[in-house]
Simulated assay, not measured.
Amino acid sequence: MSINTHGFVAADHETAADTYYPHHAEVMDRIGAERGWGPTNKRAFTAATGLRGHLTLGDPEEVAEKILFQHEVFGHDRALVQLALGTVPHRAVMTAIELLGTKVAPTVRAEVARRSPAPVDSMP
C-alpha cells in the first residue's frame, strides 16, 4: 500500500512553506474554480502541513516524522510525495529530491526496520 501526497522538503519549515505555498495556492485555486471550491488561504495551508494534515511539508525531520506517523496508522510500505506542483522552481525541486533521498528516506527506512518485529524464521 502507498501513501501519495503533495508536499515539499527544504532545509527548514519556513523555507519549505514559503517556497511551496504560492504555487500550491495558484494550482488549487485554478482547480477549485473549475470544481466549485472556494479559494485557498494561508491559514488552511498551514493547517494542512501539520502532522495530521494532508500535505507532507517541512524540514527533513518533520517530513520523516509525518511519514512515520502515517505508517503507524496505515502500515503502508511506500510513500510518494509530489513535489513539482505548478511552477515550483526547478532548483528548489532538485534540492527537495536530494533531501528526500539523503535525509528523509534513510531515517524512515531505519525507523521502520527498528519498529518491525523480527521475522519468525529468524527467531531461536
Score class of each variant (00 low, 15 high):
residue 90 H to L: 14
residue 36 G to A: 01
residue 101 G to M: 10
residue 36 G to F: 00
residue 114 R to V: 01
residue 91 R to L: 12
residue 48 A to D: 09
residue 55 L to I: 03
residue 120 V to L: 14
residue 57 L to G: 03
residue 16 A to I: 06
residue 6 H to P: 00
residue 44 A to V: 07
residue 116 S to N: 08
residue 68 L to H: 00
residue 45 F to Y: 14
residue 55 L to P: 04
residue 44 A to T: 08
residue 105 A to N: 09
residue 26 E to C: 02
residue 42 K to V: 13
residue 21 Y to N: 07
residue 5 T to M: 09
residue 46 T to R: 07
residue 51 L to K: 12
residue 82 Q to F: 14
residue 56 T to C: 13
residue 9 V to D: 01
residue 18 D to Y: 06
residue 13 H to K: 15
residue 119 P to Y: 05
residue 75 G to F: 00
residue 41 N to R: 07
residue 121 D to R: 13
residue 35 R to C: 07
residue 64 A to E: 03
residue 53 G to L: 03
residue 15 T to S: 14
residue 89 P to S: 11
residue 112 V to K: 07
residue 82 Q to I: 12
residue 45 F to S: 05
residue 114 R to C: 02
residue 62 E to Q: 15
residue 38 G to T: 13
residue 50 G to F: 04
residue 67 I to P: 10
residue 34 E to F: 09
residue 34 E to P: 00
residue 63 V to E: 07
residue 25 A to Y: 00
residue 66 K to F: 06
residue 18 D to R: 14
residue 4 N to H: 14
residue 69 F to P: 02
residue 112 V to E: 05
residue 71 H to V: 04
residue 103 K to G: 08
residue 122 S to Q: 15
residue 115 R to L: 05
residue 92 A to M: 09
residue 76 H to G: 00
residue 120 V to K: 11
residue 98 E to T: 13
residue 49 T to F: 01
residue 21 Y to C: 04
residue 95 T to P: 00
residue 70 Q to H: 12
residue 6 H to R: 13
residue 11 A to E: 15
residue 33 A to W: 04
residue 87 T to G: 01
residue 76 H to M: 10
residue 124 P to R: 12
residue 77 D to A: 06
